[in-house]
Amino acid sequence: MLGWALTFAVLAIVAGFLGFMSLAGLAATVAKVLFVVFLVLLVASFVIRAVRGQSVL
């Protein structure tokens, strides 16, 4: 999922550089949403593993 967020972030940068502002805005928004979802799932995974007594790293 982090890979998708990075892909959309690069797409937003390239689209902004080429002048496609609406596409750049949409890609940036998707990248932000995917990054937040990734972070939430990462934290949830750490918490679940810690509660089970497993190593979080």
Rank of each mutant, 00 (worst) to 15 (best):
A50G: 09
A28V: 05
L11T: 10
V40T: 10
L18I: 15
L6S: 13
Q54M: 06
A50D: 09
A27F: 03
V33G: 04
L2A: 01
S22I: 13
F38G: 00
I48T: 08
T29F: 09
V10R: 11
G25A: 14
L18P: 05
L41D: 15
A31I: 02
A24K: 00
F17A: 15
I48Q: 07
L34F: 10
L26Y: 07
V37G: 06
A24V: 02
A28L: 09
L18M: 14
W4P: 12
F17T: 15
A5Y: 07
R49M: 10
K32Y: 07
F20W: 13
L2D: 00
V33I: 11
A5D: 08
V40H: 06
L23G: 01
F46T: 06
A27T: 01
G3K: 03
K32V: 14
V56W: 01
A24L: 03
L18Y: 11
V10K: 11
G3W: 06
G3F: 02
T29S: 11
Q54R: 09
L34P: 07
G3V: 10
F35E: 04
V33T: 07
L11C: 13
A28R: 03
L26M: 13
R49P: 11
W4M: 10
L42H: 09
M21S: 15
L57T: 09
Q54T: 00
G25F: 09
A12T: 01
A31K: 00
T7A: 13
V30M: 07
V30Q: 02
V43I: 15
R49Y: 08
R52Q: 15
L2T: 01
V30A: 11
F46S: 03
F20I: 09
G25V: 11
A50Y: 14
V40D: 00
R49L: 12
S22G: 03
V37W: 15
W4G: 11
L26H: 04
A27G: 02
V36Q: 04
M21D: 15
A12D: 00
S45V: 13
L42S: 05
G19A: 08
V40W: 10
L26N: 13
L34T: 06
L11I: 15
V36C: 03
V56A: 05
W4V: 05
G53W: 00
V36R: 04
L42G: 01
R52H: 13
A9H: 04
R49V: 07
F38L: 01
G19L: 06
V56S: 09
A28F: 10
V10P: 09
L23Y: 05
A31P: 03
L6F: 13
L26K: 07
V36D: 03
V10D: 13
W4D: 12
A28P: 01
V33N: 04
F20T: 05
A24Q: 00
Q54K: 08
